[in-house]
Amino acid sequence: MKPMIEVEGFCKVYGDITAVNGMNLAVRQGEIFGLLGPNGAGKTSTLECLEGLRAPSEGFLRVAGLDPVRERKKLRHLIGVQLQSAGMPENMTPMEAMRFFCAYHGVPPRDDLLERFDLTAKQKTPFHDLSTGQQRRLGLALALAHKPQVLFLDEPTAGLDVGSRAELHGMLREFRDDGTTVLLATHDMAEAEALSDRVAILLNGCLAATGTPLEITAAGAGLTRVSVQTKAAVLQDDHHALPAVVRRMIKDNYVIYFSRDIGQTVPALIDHLQSRDDELIDLRVERPSLEDRFLEITQ
């Protein structure tokens, strides 16, 4: 199947600054793809070129089979875009915005989306009187109003409360299941890990890693963290060497071991506790997260 987003040899240069340098990327239909990177890595430039807001300096870009610059008029009905700052006229109400943008897309207004994003009670409130979260929810509702094939989201959950965030994640998964392709730029590693089918880490305008969150975290040198709390706290003063443990530390009544292989470390730890007549209160095993891997790559 042909990818919904194709990027080959993409470069974006602003004067002397190279924002993106030779990027290659393919996003499949019905995939949520996370674009991660520190500030200035080139995420927004990539998104803006794919959305047709800017022209690439070099390279081949296709979204839904269309050139984002030359075929922008056709493309605008196939993509939904939520920009980092929502950017609405300050006196425009959510209801007006829905009617306004739907009219330009040639589709009937989607009041159901205002309801779904909990904006019905605020539908006659001017944009500048909405909270940040409400403004972002409105931006999302508008991006989805014409049922786009490809959805570009820039920091979609910034400013959202926990409930709205979970609701949005659920919705994005639904859209993905219906065949919508989602390209998501975010700083939120937990969000990218929870939501994305695949992610790419962008560093200094180049792709540093691409794959599923699991593949990316597994590829790192990250150590698994084993945190233990026991009744008699015998481990606190006990420097007994456990297999595959690289280092240990004590924090908040927990002894934390950093292990290369928890298959060796955890059974040995339990045996050791039994031999010292101590009782386990809590044992936590934390694999290296996408954030750990991200920090490893970017630092």
Binding site: E51, G52, L53, K73, R76, H77, I79, V81, L83, S85, A86, G87, M88, P89, E90, F101, Y104, H105, L142
Partner: peptide
């Protein structure tokens, strides 16, 4: 209002929505 709309990113929203 034209300048403030451009500064606030309103025109960018307009552009991506055609």
């Amino acid at each position: 209002p034209l300048v403030t709309a451009r500064e606030a990113g309103v025109f960018r929203s307009y552009k991506v929505n055609g």
